[in-house]
Design a protein around this nucleic acid. Structure first.
Length: 943
RNA sequence: GCGGGUGUGGCGGAAUUGGCAGACGCGCCAGAUUUAGGAUCUGGUGUCCAUUGGACGUGAAGGUUCGAGUCCUUUCACCCGCACCA
């Protein structure tokens, strides 16, 4: 008994909290509310890794701390349980994904409870529960029922969409089509990322370097009818909303870049017959800049309208709709061949390698609107179909890509921006031999010569607008969100497609009625995708697949939603998890939202965090939530790397090679400078030693080795399992260690010896209060009911102050350091007042809750330490009778003096000058200046 | 290439507004004690020279200042994003 034994203590207190519902949260907050949220995990078969408890411990400390300070805390947990791995397991084994998902959830729940987190488990949600995805489907119907009013920048009900007269007159089908074209959830034939290996289409965000993010399989681009969400409508709102958020600047920046707003101009280049050009110009002068460029013009988007005079050719993307119009018969074969090739290329092939630019002349010319010059129009795949207008004006003198292309195909380069006079390459730039992309003074630009870039941009745009040939324009990199997946294990779409008597789709759709939700997944014999871009749900029985409503026959939508769908709104459901009437009760929503603190990994910067904000804004516009943004403050916990490893290099004949001499060949293999192949060996700590900047072999100091911590991965075999850590050191030690490693946001390497260090601290806390030597349980004999002496009282109050402030600012590592100092101090005290021990246990309890509950009960308390009040400190107790002040002479510390803490400048200076050592050092010198910072230091400047 | 971040002992990391660099922990060294455990307690531990004592020291170089890890300029290394977005 007398030894600290977490494996006995911890399960006992976890059971106590569960039985007593210690962390149950009231439906509505009583007093000041605080909503503390973790990014819920995907319950993978591997269980928790040590990265999960890092963020979860941080939020748990914040939650427990806030409760002790009297706040009403909502701190829930759930599972993002749809997704590919469970489905792949199902394909392999034939077992329903639900079964493995449930066992994974059970395992995660066990592990989370084992770590003593103070979640309100009654609020647990899983995205795969029918009661949950029913409302995911409901939100999809809200998106389906919403159009974006760009005038007011707001989402509105589709019934409020103004129908243009010519459409209204064309009949109900046309009106319906018009509505469909404006819904936030719409279907479109999109060029999609089709991954044959996974048998599904992926979002742009799920494709990296032309391969699937999951599994690394190749991805092709094919056209397919897909559900899309019109997130681009909300670009501006999503951008503006970032300002008010207390998020890391890095994440804000990532979202800004992802949205990628740029401003410039759209410009039409005339491509019609020369004879009709004057008519066209005149018509444009009258009509102004039209919505569509029309037959006779090629529209481009540019951020540099000031360089229009330097546009010496144009480029359209291989997918551009006007290629047929542009290509001449002589060039037809070449262009067709080029476009075909480009369409076969995956994104990876198109962007990979040295990316030498390729292209083909269409045979056509366009007219540069500012100087009337005829310029050739090319097709090239360096221009992307999906951005801007899919066509550009090329200004080789002032754009790197255009410059490279112009050099390649010997096209004209006309400089129109004069760099600042001191530019080292000005001569070459003006000769057209070097590209210059920065700002300067306009040249070769007619009436605009001599003006600065910004001014020219504005005046050229204005002049084009006047002639109806251009206009100011804003563009975003953000694309609409491809929202359908051809998988089984996801939310079915609550959409029905009308079929006629012969079973063909009529093109009419209808939403499943809200009272008929949820649309459940059908029972299937097997879960295999068939490798065609047709979803597995299409294999369902007819009684699932076909429904009759109002006398019409419908086929269900067979795509499913992507995994992001469920995670877009789970933070709302926690507030009212059992509501069967609505997604959330408005009163509860108002009371608890927004999330006050959201902690999770930075990998979600542009995916989950952008999608969630988008859905939230739509729900806000439609009156279902009361805040414009869901997550007020966001913190990204840093990654935990594996233990530091030393890596040595050897050639095939096993002779060591210094890390400094290791090269990589073209294939990325390691070689020596002479080309011998090299392999790596893992070295133990005692085989290496520090030398200079790095580490070397101990027995061969000329051989450098690499020392690095690597990302934890199964293949490297450096994954740390929380179950093992808890078994060996206890949950409190794991929690404390992860908080003590360093700042929460920092990337830091794991070190098992460090866990031993904090465990050692917990042992010391135990022995500070319990007599560990006796066989029977008894309190440490040093404990006393006497009050603290002055030093003890100061230590106590300083610790209260530091731990309070550091916990508040989430500087957990320094708060723990301070509690270690407290323990070291009181362990040395012959008498330890319980009046100091009790508040200390409360301070430590958010960090190491099991140990503190246990010791709290030993000190004669009968209720949970979680129900106590956070101690406060007294400033008067912090004051010392005298403090040490360093004396510097010419900025170097020479000695120290003792003065009263509130001593005046004069007193301190006098004391300093009266000091014997100071006197001797000043002998024969003159004081030029004396700086006295009260309570800090004295600096004497002497000659 | 562009953007963001980080560089402090053998290691993880501390250091209000510029004010004693290295808190706390690991590791290491020494001592005490012991039921000999990978226990506990005490002391030491940036580098160099040395007898007291001194000099140097926060990736590198320069600057501002009485005083710089902290501010400015230049530069190097590593990490993380994005990557033909006109």
């Amino acid at each position: 008994m007398p030894r600290y034994n977490p494996s006995e203590i911890e399960p006992r207190w976890q059971a106590y909290w569960e039985e007593n519902r210690t962390f149950a949260t009231p439906a509505l907050p009583t007093g000041k509310k605080r909503y503390v949220l973790d990014m819920f995990p995907y319950p993978s078969g591997d269980g928790l890794h040590v990265g999960h408890p890092e963020g979860y411990t941080a939020t748990d400390i914040v939650s427990r701390f806030a409760r002790l300070r009297g706040e009403c805390v909502l701190h829930p947990m759930g599972f993002d349980a749809f997704g590919l791995p469970a489905e792949e397991h199902a394909i392999k084994t034939g077992e329903h994904p639900r079964i493995q998902t449930q066992s994974n959830i059970d395992n995660f729940t066990r592990q989370l409870k084992m770590l003593g987190f103070s979640y309100d488990w009654d609020r647990m949600v899983s995205t795969t529960d029918e009661d949950y995805f029913r409302w995911t489907q409901w939100i999809f119907l809200v998106l389906y029922d919403t159009w974006f009013d760009s005038e007011t920048q707001r989402g509105r009900a589709i019934s409020e969409l103004p129908i243009p007269a010519e459409i209204a007159s064309a009949g109900e089908a046309a009106v319906e089509q018009y509505r469909d074209a404006n819904r936030l959830a719409y279907q479109d034939d999109a060029l999609v990322n089709w991954c044959p290996a996974l048998g599904t289409v992926l979002a742009n965000e799920e494709v990296q370097d032309g391969k699937s993010e999951r599994g690394g399989h190749p991805v092709k681009r094919i056209p397919l009818r897909q559900w899309m969400l019109r997130i681009t409508s909300y670009s501006e709102r999503l951008l503006e909303g970032l300002d008010e958020l207390n998020w890391p600047v890095g994440i804000k920046k990532l979202q800004q870049d992802w949205i990628g707003r740029s401003t410039g101009a759209e410009v039409d280049f005339y491509i019609g017959e020369a004879a009709r050009m004057d008519d066209w110009k005149a018509a444009r002068g009258k009509s102004g800049f039209p919505q569509e460029a029309g037959e006779d013009a090629l529209r481009v988007y540019t951020t540099r309208p000031d360089t229009l005079f330097g546009a010496t050719y144009m480029v359209v993307s291989p997918e551009h709709s006007m290629i047929e119009r542009l290509v001449t018969s002589e060039q037809s074969d070449a262009v067709q061949q080029y476009c075909e090739q480009a369409s076969f290329k995956s994104d990876r092939e198109r962007t990979e390698g040295d990316r030498a630019k390729t292209g083909v002349f269409t045979g056509s010319h366009a007219v540069n609107p500012v100087n009337g010059k005829l310029i050739p129009v090319w097709v090239a795949d360096y221009v992307l179909a999906g951005y801007g207008t899919g066509a550009i004006m090329a200004v080789p003198a002032h754009d790197d890509r255009d410059f490279e292309f112009a050099k390649q195909y010997d096209l004209d380069i006309v400089p129109v921006v004069d760099p600042p006079g001191d530019h080292p390459q000005r001569t070459e730039i003006l000769a057209g031999d070097v590209c210059f992309v920065a700002q300067g003074t306009a040249i070769n630009s007619g009436e605009f010569d001599g003006n600065q870039t910004d001014q020219v941009k504005a005046s050229v745009t204005a002049s084009l607008a006047e002639q109806g040939q251009g206009n100011h324009a804003v563009n975003y990199k953000l694309r609409d969100w491809l929202f359908s997946r051809q998988r089984f294990w996801g939310e079915p779409f609550p959409i029905l497609h009308e079929v006629d008597d012969s079973g063909e789709l009529t093109g009419q759709k209808r939403a499943v009625a809200v009272e008929d939700l949820p649309v459940r997944l059908p029972e299937l014999e097997d879960f295999k995708p068939h490798g065609r871009p047709e979803p597995p749900l299409a294999k369902a029985d007819d009684d699932w697949l076909y429904v009759t409503v109002d006398g019409k026959r419908y086929r269900r939508e067979t795509n499913t939603m992507p995994q992001w769908a469920g995670s877009c709104w789970y933070y709302l459901r926690y507030i009212d998890p059992k509501n069967s009437e609505a997604m959330i009760d408005p009163e509860k929503e108002k009371a608890w939202m927004p999330v006050d603190l959201y902690v999770g990994g930075a990998e979600h910067a542009v995916l989950h965090l952008l999608y969630s904000r988008f859905w939230h804004k739509v729900l806000f516009d439609r009156g279902h939530v009361s805040t414009a943004e869901p997550f007020n403050a966001l913190i990204n916990q840093g990654m935990i790397l594996g233990e530091v490893e030393f890596t040595g290099y050897v050639t095939d004949d096993n002779s060591p090679v210094s890390a400094a001499d290791v090269r990589r060949d073209a294939d990325g293999n390691l070689t020596t400078a002479t080309g011998q192949t090299i392999s790596t060996v893992v070295l133990t700590d005692d085989a290496v030693e520090k030398k200079g900047e790095g580490f070397v072999l101990q027995n061969a100091p000329q051989i450098r080795v690499d020392s690095r911590a690597h990302k934890m991965s199964k293949s490297r075999g450096n994954v740390v399992n929380p179950d093992v850590v808890v078994r060996e050191y206890g949950a409190d030690a794991l929690r404390l260690y992860e908080m003590f490693m360093g700042p929460l946001e920092a990337t830091k390497p794991w070190a098992m010896t460090g866990v031993g260090g904090v465990r050692n601290f917990l042992d010391r806390v135990w022995r500070m209060i319990v007599d560990a030597k006796s066989d029977e349980f008894q309190l440490n004999a040093a404990l006393t009911d006497q009050p603290c002496d002055e030093d003890q009282n100061r230590m106590l109050h300083r610790t209260i102050k530091k731990v309070t402030e550091d916990t508040d600012s989430m500087s957990f590592n320094t708060a723990i350091a301070r509690m270690m100092e407290f323990t070291n101090f009181f362990t040395r005290c012959e008498s330890r007042p319980t009046a100091a021990m009790k508040p200390f246990l409360i301070l430590l309890s958010p960090y190491a809750p099991h140990l503190c509950e246990e010791l709290w009960s030993y000190l004669g308390e009968s209720d949970s330490i979680a129900a106590q009040t956070w101690p406060s400190w007294e400033e008067s107790a912090l004051v010392e009778s005298s403090i040490e002040v360093p004396i510097q002479i010419n900025g170097k510390v020479k000695t120290k003096i003792q003065v009263a803490p509130d001593a005046s400048k004069e007193t301190i200076a006098e004391t300093a000058l009266a000091d014997d050592k100071v006197k001797s050092l000043l002998e024969g010198k003159t004081i030029i200046k004396q700086i006295v910072v009260p309570g800090r230091l004295v600096n004497l400047v002497v000659k």
